[in-house]
């Protein structure tokens, strides 16, 4: 009985290690080697469109609302201490350090990550990847690489847009509606937000998250069992695994950046 349980644990550990290995090999195969600018650039632009531009709407809308909610919630607390002048820093620091990168990554995993997994899983199921390989075209370079780079580029940009829109949303609620002084909203923000400490650390965070989410999404698609059930499971796994990984790494990165 105990032996069986142990075997099960061992089996799962081996599976996850080999899965990790396969994911590493996939990424290695995709991004190592001389890129072909002539062929690669149009593919990259196409994927930037699919991954970046098409995610813009959800990022804009959720950024605006999260900024507005932050201002509203923050105001009700700060006003008790007569510190509503600190609303600007509250909104901007929460967004720049935490919510911008994290929420963008979570939305990105749900919007673009799941789509990527399903797309690649379906390409595998319909033998498109095999077919490409038989045509002497490496699917890692042709399919995986442009999607990977597009994701790594697009997500920090989306996070920046998310932050900017969120801060404007905070302005909308805090200044226009609740009547915090516009001058103190912006100047307190400037006094407390540091370009390197806050803005750029946020960007670094979202780069790391981009790498994690896109890697998981591509690997889950590439490794999916090519049946409809397998693909639907891979898609779910992408969203779950990527979200958990983002939150976990967020703690580690926050501890490294702001903890010490």
């Amino acid at each position: 009985m105990i032996a069986n349980k142990l075997q099960l644990i061992g089996q799962q550990a081996l599976n996850s290690v080999s899965g990790f290995g396969r994911a590493g090999l996939m990424l290695f195969g995709a991004i190592v080697g001389k890129p072909n600018i002539r062929k690669g650039l149009p593919l990259l632009i196409k994927q930037l469109y699919v991954i970046g531009v098409l995610s813009l709407m959800i990022i804009l809308v959720s950024g605006l609302f999260i900024g507005m909610v932050l201002a509203l919630q923050g105001y009700t607390v700060l006003v008790k201490f007569g510190a509503e002048g600190m609303l600007g820093p509250l909104v901007s620091l929460s967004l720049l350090r935490e919510l911008g990168p994290v929420v963008t990554a979570l939305l990105f995993a749900g919007r673009a990550g799941s789509a990527l997994t399903a797309e690649i899983g379906l390409m595998k199921a319909t033998e498109q990847l095999s077919g490409m390989e038989m045509m002497a075209v490496d699917p890692l370079r042709r399919i995986i690489a442009p999607r990977f780079w597009a994701g790594v580029i697009a997500m920090p940009l989306l996070a920046l847009i998310f932050n900017a829109v969120g801060i404007l949303g905070g302005h909308l609620v805090g200044v226009e509606w609740l009547g915090v002084d516009a001058g103190s909203y912006w100047s307190a923000m400037q006094a407390n937000v540091d370009l390197y400490q806050d803005v750029l650390n946020g960007v670094i965070k979202s780069m790391v998250f981009a790498l994690i989410v896109i890697w998981i999404a591509l690997h889950k698609g590439f490794d999916a069992i090519p049946t409809s059930e397998g693909i639907s499971r891979a898609t779910t796994q992408t969203v779950v695994t990527a979200s958990l990984a983002v939150l976990g790494f967020d703690f580690v990165l926050t501890a490294l950046m702001f903890g010490g």
């Binding site: 632009i45 930037l48 531009v53 901007s92 900017a164 006094a191 937000v193 803005v199």
Partner: peptide, 22 residues
């Protein structure tokens, strides 16, 4: 559209750098 996306994100970065950060 991709060009517009990149310009928009640059604008967002500039806003964060100049108007938000100190």
């Amino acid at each position: 559209l991709v060009g517009a996306f990149i310009v928009l994100s640059c604008a967002a970065f500039l806003m964060l750098a100049l108007k938000v950060a100190n």
